[in-house]
Amino acid sequence: MKTPDVVSKDEWHAAHQRLLVKEKELTRARDALAAQRRRMPWLAVEEAYEFDGPQGRVSLLDLFEGRRQLVVYRAFFDPGVHGWPDHPCVGCSMMADQVSHLAHLNARDTTLAYVSRAPQPDIARVKARMGWTMPWYTMLDGFDADFGVDQWHGTNAFIRDGNRVFRTYFVNNRGDEALGTPWSYLDITALGRQEEWEDSPEGYPQTPPYTWWNWHDEYDVSARPAGEEQVRRAAEAGLLPG
């Protein structure tokens, strides 16, 4: 193993500052790409897809749980797939392990759901064993083939306007390997993080950064967000996005 040079503290900090310039360029490029996603055209979903859930048969619209946006990950927990019946495939299991607390995503009017071909009793058993808490449904029709996830895992983003559902984005392969945080999911949605610094089309919902953040067990209890003082301090410290 050929390791990098060992240098003085000043040399290390200088190298870090040079790298930080490129990292900030990457951050801004990532923000610009997310802005382009928010301008992707929408595709109307005309088919009446159905799923089996813990409470019985539901529609794609039901998967939104009343929220405006929906992110759906197709996990390969199916008969005949490696790991069956004890686990989903290794990669999909790693994806499930890295999903953070969904209360933060829900606070931005967005729902995350997993779908597979496994029957609900098997899904419930594996979720309990692995400690996973995301909604997880059984596909009953051609949803996977129609949305590009019949042969490989992938993540689709949807938005609803009343009872009308639209597909807004799709990513698979290495594109969804880093998904799991609220930020990563929101960045692939039509509305984004919904913060004022974002480059979004006119009229999109936006609030100041930080003000909507809360403890995950208090969003529905106190709805006590951070407030303007935290935003002021963050601005003075140069911590606001940009």
Results as ranks from 00 to 15, higher is better:
152 W>H: 15
152 W>Y: 07
152 W>S: 13
153 H>V: 10
154 G>L: 07
154 G>Y: 07
155 T>F: 05
155 T>H: 05
155 T>P: 02
155 T>E: 06
156 N>H: 02
156 N>A: 15
157 A>V: 09
157 A>F: 15
157 A>M: 14
158 F>T: 05
158 F>K: 05
158 F>I: 03
158 F>H: 09
161 D>I: 05
161 D>F: 14
161 D>R: 11
161 D>H: 06
161 D>N: 07
161 D>V: 07
161 D>K: 11
161 D>G: 10
161 D>W: 03
162 G>I: 07
162 G>K: 01
162 G>H: 08
162 G>Y: 11
164 R>Y: 06
164 R>Q: 15
164 R>N: 10
164 R>I: 07
165 V>G: 00
165 V>A: 09
165 V>I: 13
165 V>N: 03
165 V>K: 06
165 V>F: 07
166 F>E: 04
166 F>P: 14
166 F>V: 09
166 F>T: 11
167 R>L: 15
168 T>W: 06
168 T>Q: 03
168 T>G: 10
168 T>A: 14
169 Y>T: 08
169 Y>R: 12
169 Y>G: 14
169 Y>E: 05
170 F>A: 14
170 F>L: 07
170 F>E: 12
170 F>M: 13
170 F>I: 03
171 V>N: 02
171 V>A: 14
171 V>F: 10
172 N>I: 01
172 N>T: 02
172 N>G: 14
173 N>Q: 13
173 N>H: 14
173 N>D: 15
174 R>D: 12
174 R>L: 12
174 R>K: 12
174 R>I: 13
175 G>H: 09
175 G>I: 11
175 G>R: 11
175 G>T: 14
176 D>V: 00
176 D>F: 13
177 E>I: 12
178 A>S: 08
178 A>W: 08
178 A>G: 08
179 L>R: 00
179 L>M: 11
179 L>D: 12
179 L>H: 11
179 L>Q: 11
180 G>W: 03
180 G>P: 04
180 G>S: 04
182 P>C: 02
182 P>L: 04
183 W>C: 10
183 W>Q: 12
184 S>W: 06
184 S>A: 15
184 S>H: 08
184 S>G: 14
184 S>T: 13
185 Y>I: 01
185 Y>C: 08
186 L>C: 04
186 L>E: 01
187 D>I: 00
187 D>R: 13
187 D>K: 10
187 D>Q: 10
188 I>F: 08
188 I>H: 09
189 T>N: 05
189 T>Q: 02
190 A>N: 03
190 A>H: 04
190 A>Y: 08
190 A>W: 05
190 A>I: 00
191 L>C: 03
191 L>H: 02
191 L>N: 04
192 G>C: 06
192 G>P: 00
192 G>D: 04
193 R>K: 11
193 R>P: 05
194 Q>F: 01
194 Q>P: 04
194 Q>I: 00
194 Q>W: 06
195 E>S: 08
195 E>K: 04
195 E>M: 09
196 E>T: 15
196 E>C: 13
196 E>Y: 02
197 W>I: 06
197 W>L: 01
197 W>E: 11
198 E>D: 02
198 E>F: 01
198 E>P: 03
200 S>D: 00
200 S>N: 03
200 S>L: 08
200 S>C: 13
201 P>W: 01
202 E>R: 00
203 G>Y: 01
203 G>I: 01
204 Y>W: 13
204 Y>K: 06
